[in-house]
C-alpha cells in the first residue's frame, strides 16, 4: 500500500483548510479591533465586547435564541427518536411511504418554502406569531435531522441484545429503557446537539415564523448586517463561534472518554473470560 502523502495532496488539503478557516479567523481577529472601521487595524481592544454587554436588545435576542433552542431541540429529539424507531422497527404499516417521505423531505426542502408554509399554517389556524410559533417551526425542521442521526445508529444496532433481555423475561417496554435506550443514547445526544445548533443558526425560517417580541440572535445580526459591518457584530459572532466550539470540543472529549472506557471494559471482560 502506497502511504506516501504526496506534495500535491498535502498542499491541496492545507490550501483547502486555509480557505475554510481564514474568513472565520479574520472575523474573530477584527472583533478585537480598536477602530470602528472594521477593516482598518488600530490596535487591540475588548471594548466591543464590553459595549455588547450593555446592549439590551442583543441580550434579549440571545436569551430568546437560547430558550427556543433548548425547548425545540428537546421536543425535536423526542419526536425524532420516535420517528427513527418507526422507520427502522416498523417496516410494515399503512402510510409508511408517506411517513418516510415526510421525514426526509424537510432535509432538502428550501428554507424559504418551509418558512412560508409554516407561516401560512399559523395564520390559517389563527396562532399569533411569536415565541411559540418559532419554537414549533424549529421543532418541525430539526426533528428530521435527529431522526436521520438516530436512525443510522439503530440500523447498526445488535438486536440479539434485545432478544436476550426478552428471553430472560423483560417486557418490551422495559427492554427498550434498559437495553435499547442506553445503546443509542450517544446518537440521541448528538441529535440533540445538532438540533440545538440548527435552531441557534436558523435565520430564514425564524424570519417567516417569528413575530414582535421574539427576535432571535440571527434575526438581530441580519438586520444589523444590512445596515453595515461593525466591530460589534464581529464580537457577537465571535462569541457565538466560541460557545459552539466549546460545545463541540466538549462533546468530542466526552465521546472519547466513553470510547476509552468501553474498550477497557471489553478488555476486562475478555480477560475475565480467559
Amino acid at each position: 500500500m502506497n502511504t506516501v502523502w504526496s506534495r500535491f495532496n498535502i498542499s491541496s488539503v492545507v490550501l483547502g483548510f486555509a480557505f475554510l478557516y481564514l474568513p472565520i479567523v479574520l472575523l474573530v481577529i477584527y472583533s478585537f479591533n480598536e477602530s470602528k472601521l472594521v477593516t482598518v487595524w488600530a490596535g487591540f481592544s475588548t471594548k466591543w465586547y464590553v459595549s455588547l454587554l450593555s446592549n439590551q436588545s442583543v441580550l434579549d435576542a440571545a436569551w430568546v435564541t437560547v430558550r427556543v433552542g433548548i425547548l425545540s431541540a428537546t421536543v425535536a429529539t423526542v419526536l425524532g427518536t420516535l420517528a427513527a424507531l418507526t422507520l427502522v422497527r416498523f417496516t410494515r404499516f399503512r402510510g409508511r411511504l408517506l411517513f418516510s417521505g415526510m421525514v426526509f423531505a424537510p432535509l432538502v426542502m428550501p428554507e424559504v418554502i418551509t418558512g412560508l408554509s409554516l407561516l401560512l399554517l399559523f395564520v390559517a389556524i389563527g396562532l399569533d406569531r411569536g415565541f411559540i410559533t418559532v419554537t414549533l417551526a424549529h421543532i418541525t425542521f430539526t426533528m428530521c435531522f435527529v431522526a436521520v442521526v438516530v436512525q443510522s445508529r439503530l440500523m447498526t444496532f445488535d438486536r440479539s441484545l434485545e432478544e436476550a433481555a426478552m428471553d430472560l423475561g423483560a417486557p418490551p417496554v422495559k427492554t427498550f429503557f434498559q437495553i435499547t435506550l442506553p445503546v443509542i443514547l450517544p446518537a440521541i445526544i448528538s441529535g440533540w446537539m445538532l438540533a440545538f445548533t440548527l435552531s441557534l443558526d436558523d435565520l430564514v425560517i425564524s424570519n417567516f415564523t417569528s413575530g414582535p417580541g421574539a427576535t432571535t440572535l440571527p434575526m438581530k445580526i441580519y438586520s444589523q448586517v444590512r445596515l453595515g459591518v461593525t466591530p460589534e457584530i464581529n464580537a457577537i459572532c465571535s462569541l457565538m463561534i466560541g460557545v459552539v466550539a466549546l460545545g463541540v470540543i466538549g462533546a468530542s472529549l466526552v465521546n472519547k472518554r466513553r470510547e476509552v472506557q468501553r474498550l477497557r471494559d471489553e478488555q476486562a471482560a475478555r480477560q475475565g473470560n480467559g
Partner: peptide
C-alpha cells in the same frame, strides 16, 4: 458555526 456568520465574514 453559523451559516449567517460565515457569509458575513466574507463581506469584510
Amino acid at each position: 458555526t453559523s451559516f449567517l456568520i460565515r457569509v458575513y465574514a466574507w463581506i469584510g
